[in-house]
Design a binder for these strands. Sequence first.
DNA 1: CCATGTGAACGATTTCACAGCA
DNA 2: TGCTGTGAAATCGTTCACATGG
Lengths: 222, 222
Amino acid sequence: MKLKIPEATIIRLSLYLRNLCEMERKGHVTISSEYLAKSLGIKSALVRKDLAYFGEFGTKGVGYDVKDLHAQILRIFGLNANWNVAIIGEPGLAVFLDNNFKKRGFVISSIFNLDPEKVGTVVNGVRIQAMDSLEATLKGKNTRLVILAVPAPVAQEIADKLVKAGIQAILNFVPVVLNVPPWVKLRNVDLVMHLEILTFCVGTQRVRLVESRGKRPWIGQA
Amino acid sequence: MKLKIPEATIIRLSLYLRNLCEMERKGHVTISSEYLAKSLGIKSALVRKDLAYFGEFGTKGVGYDVKDLHAQILRIFGLNANWNVAIIGEPGLAVFLDNNFKKRGFVISSIFNLDPEKVGTVVNGVRIQAMDSLEATLKGKNTRLVILAVPAPVAQEIADKLVKAGIQAILNFVPVVLNVPPWVKLRNVDLVMHLEILTFCVGTQRVRLVESRGKRPWIGQA
DNA sequence: CCATGTGAACGATTTCACAGCA
DNA sequence: TGCTGTGAAATCGTTCACATGG
């Protein structure tokens, strides 16, 4: 196994996985790198290179076994077992997310909110809790992953509490640069940024974004 | 003005913008490429190159005028005036988003939902509407931008309606490859993908993601 | 003197092209 | 023959280094 893996490879791995679920559902037995590549608008050699970082999963002259490759990628992501996810703030997210999440190995195990009025409400079978039960609940439920969607002014303060509670990764929706220790993995999603990119694209017919060599609707947003 | 602009440049432009708002609020008059670069963990030459795609905004020996650069980037994004945004599905998003959105030039002008029970409810001053009023409302309110967060099985069908209603750009949260005509700009955000990347990072101490040359917590997600 | 703007060098990622095996 | 796995080449993005000008 090699040592340096491009982030783009990991992003594509997730998209291959989504594709493989679909293929498995449809009853396909094998799949070619060419097919996966087409669906992402990339070249097949890149698909093979991506997979080669982790092993030799294919059969020459045949392709990849759908079920096997699916299992391999799940293993690569550490998704052999489900992961508990806590949502801090915005309980509305939970409703929308829950359907997709369960199917793909993530369980919304707890929801927290700053607003005392909302505490006690049940969303998708999960009771909204107050912030003071954060540490105890996260540790009790073995929650290593958190989605953060709170108002910007309190984001860092809450992030600190999460770190103290032993969380290992944060998916941050707050448009603020969070400071966390290096062992906590952080991923930021700024929705305004995505909208700005869209307005840029809408506004400029003159300028051409490089983005689409081929046509890869899911890549680059990372 | 050059013709091909890397998507990464547009992403950074959005981050510069966020930074400039902060600087302006703090009363800073000028800002250097070095300062902007440090805050993103990149080299100053890259900041200058990014800006050079669009013009010469700086003064040699001094730096950039905060207010001017702020205005220039807003103009580049086409954000001289506010953009109306419609949310299809998940009204909970609206509550969380509204605060940040307004400040940065986006107004949630309408919310639609498939569930008849929710229609009529008022969220953040916006009445939730039924899907059958989609086209009339979007056209009436001059809405060119839509956030799509509906169940996967109906996503394509609704996307078709949006295209028919003359929408120009879609920010898609549904983990499905949407087919839209080339003049409609599409940007996909798959939250499960982001969680998978995080579980990958948590799982592997052995493997090192290339991601962090320097330290750019906001880049690569795209 | 200081920070911008940019050609040249570098590094990383993607594609090409083909060897190797079912 | 058909498709994988992989060096070599091409491409794209970032950094270096410096000329330029306030």
